[in-house]
Amino acid sequence: MNEQIQEVLALTNRWVKRLSREKFSMLFTLIQPMLFWLIFFGNLFQRAADVQIVQAPNYMSFLAAGVVVMTVLNNGLAGGVDLLFDKENGFLERLMATPIRRSSVIISRFLFVMAITAMQILVILGVAFLFGVSAETGILGIALILVIGMLFGVGLTAISMAMAFSVKSHGDFFSVLGFLSLPMIFLSSALVPLAAMPGWMKTLAFFNPMTWVIDAIRPLILSGWSQALPQVAIALGVLAIFDALCLYGGARAFKRSVG
């Protein structure tokens, strides 16, 4: 057990070092979601969005939950990229020829992606606060937002790693990634509430786990505990199923790839 902790720490430390040496990449990773989505999109649609429809004092306060979950989505789906590069340049094989527990590599990646995501969520909520959006449920609510975000992120990262281990080339990986990411966002309640969508989109968004995650986080920011808790309970149920499926798929892909 102690040995595995040492392995996971050493491998996680590597991801941190890599990120810290890609300063530009780090900066843009942190800034992009809040700048692009929250500030630009939030202010741009301020007038266009109908307060009656979004059921929020202003569009940005409605959008905040969406941006939080979009960030989880993008980080999660990109979570396997570094493993893909490790696979392609042989670093993964070097690691696999050492007497480490096979799971240490995976766990280190989960830890790293989750830590980065958590930081980004806090930054987004902080920026939203500067624009006058504060979470109705306070610190405890923010902690719950982080937990829900992490639970969604685990499943997404597992999908991403499964893809990294299965694809033949990184071209395939990025094609699938590009194909998945935007539809997941548009076919969810991130930008518009379900009630305001055309029927067919509503149906698709209903089956998107992202919708349920957003619908749990949004009342934590906008409304307060009494409205949030039932939504949170539903989201936790959805996430339990989602994560179980993703982790099962991820474990299979990993086993097939590295034994």
Partner: peptide, 22 residues
């Protein structure tokens, strides 16, 4: 390994320290 399985963001010493932990 055959490929240059080197992490270009790590120093030489960091490669060895990582493996020492593993």
């Amino acid at each position: 390994p055959q490929e240059r399985a080197i992490d270009r963001f790590l120093t030489g010493r960091e490669h060895l320290l990582l493996l020492a932990d593993l």
